[in-house]
């Protein structure tokens, strides 16, 4: 039974214990990953070559996609920037949200009728202000 107890025993050095579990997980991921590659690589490659698999959806709207991917980080950046300039008043949130909500609504709106644009503008001003007043001032929720 000594082979069992030697296999069974485990010593984890506390100073190194932060690596023990990640190593197990990485090993498992590597094994499963290789297995998936071996079994699935060929059919996937075939599908990609024949054009059956496309990364983007058919008729993707690249303008809206790219604009979205630019607009969200720009919004977060602006929020942080204003928040540092005028700290602890929630103004980073308020002053960044108004243009963001307006820009994103305009981007997603297909029929820019006078009515829709009015709704969008009103919403862009009212919604962030409402949230700012209620959450920041009444509930003291932290805001940038």
């Amino acid at each position: 039974m000594s082979w069992f107890s030697s296999l069974n025993s485990v010593v984890i050095d506390f100073d190194q214990s932060h690596l023990f579990f990640p190593r197990i997980v990485i090993t498992l991921i590597a094994i499963l990953g290789t297995f998936i590659l071996i079994t699935h690589l060929r059919p996937v490659l075939r599908a990609m070559r024949s054009g059956q698999y496309q990364f983007f959806v058919q008729h993707a709207d690249f303008m809206r996609l790219l604009a979205t991917l630019a607009l969200i980080p720009a919004y977060f950046w602006l929020m942080e920037f204003i928040g540092e300039w005028l700290p602890n008043m929630g103004l980073g949130f308020l002053l960044a949200s108004i243009p963001f909500v307006f820009a994103m609504s305009m981007l997603y709106c297909h029929e820019k009728t006078r009515r829709n644009v009015t709704i969008i503008t009103a919403n862009a001003v009212i919604a962030p202000t409402f949230v700012w007043v209620v959450l920041y001032h009444f509930f003291l929720v932290s805001m940038p």
């Binding site: 969200i72 919004y75 977060f76 929020m79 949130f93 949200s97 963001f100 909500v101 994103m104 609504s105 305009m106 981007l107 997603y108 709106c109 297909h110 829709n116 709704i119 969008i120 919403n123 862009a124 919604a127 962030p128 949230v131 959450l135 929720v141 932290s142 805001m143 940038p144």
Partner: peptide, 21 residues
């Protein structure tokens, strides 16, 4: 076009506040 910007905005508020800023 009205709902999505508001969702992003509220998610930002929530994410910022979850660990107190």
């Amino acid at each position: 076009f009205i709902l999505y910007p508001i969702i992003v905005m509220m998610c930002a508020v929530g994410a910022y506040a979850i660990n107190y800023g």
